[in-house]
């Protein structure tokens, strides 16, 4: 078989899927990159600045996208949803639907890469935080959009902002027992960026622990606390009530053990990272193993291989930072390259 006879289907054009497509395309393999939305880039394309070095993720997406366009063996299907997957001998049949034109069809592929990403837990489960009730309570992805507008001076930065971590994570009673891994870092980034744009804005970060296990991560959080002067409060907020058009946050500072209140203009909820329901639906079509929550699971010993000819990359496996998603995307490309060379 030649390289033209084998094709890999990447489901999801976020940063992980993009990276897999790039690496396979650079190797000359035929790649079909199916993205449900009209544009590539996924969650990362919505972000402003990054940890641990304040770099621009949108620039990163732009560079990768431009590179992708130069690769003749990569076909990008935007607006395209994969609606069905069947195993065939030596590969799969994938059914697709174009969300814009409602056209549909199917195509044969020899390898599958799940790069469907994650989404955020619906924080309206916590009536006490008022998400979906008070207009100034947003989740962290919605806040990224606001950050963009603050950067462009399109709207005023509020006088005070509270960031709640662990909303839905580390909560066995209303959410999930797991730690969503990335919230500590992106919250530090968001609060730090706000302080850079508007040093007078008061930022509170409510935390149980801050988990900064990565190269330069600890230094990054310390910089946000020490230099940018973000107030970190150790305690999980209990209640948000309206008071004179402001939001009053009730919490305990657990380090001195006293109940306290803070009056803020905006609340940002670092909602738990949860798998997309679409991922679970696709995994079920192939009988793939997922964990209790619906994240797909690679086999022990490989960062990305789920089963024969099926791989994953990025947030569909678990919460992951963008650099980690890129690493997994590249690893998936390496696995596919190895597979296709073995088949040849």
């Amino acid at each position: 078989m030649s390289k033209a006879d084998t094709a890999a289907l990447i489901i999801g054009g976020g940063i992980a899927g993009l990276e897999t497509a790039l690496k396979l395309g650079q190797g000359g393999y035929t790649v079909i990159l199916a993205e449900k939305e009209s544009a590539l880039g996924g969650n990362v394309a919505k972000l402003h600045s990054s940890f641990p070095r304040w770099e621009d993720p949108q620039e990163l997406i732009k560079v990768k996208q431009a590179e992708l366009k130069t690769l003749p063996s990569v076909r990008v299907l935007a607006n395209t949803e994969i609606t069905g997957l069947q195993r065939q001998s030596g590969g799969f049949t994938a059914h697709w639907t174009d969300r814009a034109t409602q056209k549909s069809g199917s195509l044969p592929v020899q390898a599958l890469i799940f790069a469907t990403g994650f989404e955020l837990f619906n924080a309206s489960v916590y009536g006490e935080y008022g998400y979906g009730i008070y207009k100034n309570v947003v989740n962290s992805l919605e806040f990224e959009h606001l950050l963009g507008m603050y950067e462009q001076r399109a709207i005023h930065v509020p006088e005070s902002i509270a960031f709640f971590k662990c909303v839905g994570s580390r909560d066995r009673s209303k959410g999930f027992p797991y730690c969503s891994k990335i919230c500590c870092m992106y919250t530090a980034k968001q609060a730090g960026l706000v302080k850079k744009i508007s040093p007078d804005t008061q930022c509170y970060v409510f935390y149980m622990d801050y988990r900064a296990s990565g190269k330069e991560y600890e230094e990054f959080v310390r910089q946000v606390i020490e230099e940018r002067k973000v107030r970190y409060v150790r305690g999980r907020p209990s209640k948000v009530v309206l008071e004179n058009d402001k939001l009053l946050v009730r919490f305990e500072d657990t380090l001195i053990g006293v109940p306290m209140e803070a009056s803020v203009d905006l609340i940002v909820l670092a909602s738990a990272v949860v798998p997309r329901p679409e991922t679970l639906a696709l995994a079920r079509m192939l009988g793939l193993k997922t964990d209790d929550y619906g994240f797909v699971e690679p086999v022990y010993g490989s960062p990305v291989r789920i089963e024969e000819r099926i791989f994953m990359a990025g947030g569909c496996g678990f919460a992951i930072e963008s650099l980690g998603a890129i690493a997994q995307g590249a690893a998936a490309a390496a696995e596919v390259t190895a597979l296709f060379n073995k088949s040849e």
Binding site: R236, R250, E252, T254, G257
Partner: peptide, 25 residues
Amino acid sequence: ARCLECGKCTGGCSYAAGFDYTPRK
């Protein structure tokens, strides 16, 4: 042992401000 020591109990408590020891403590 399940306690995460997060203090959400105390922040929500109706009368923690008047307690000698808060629920978390």
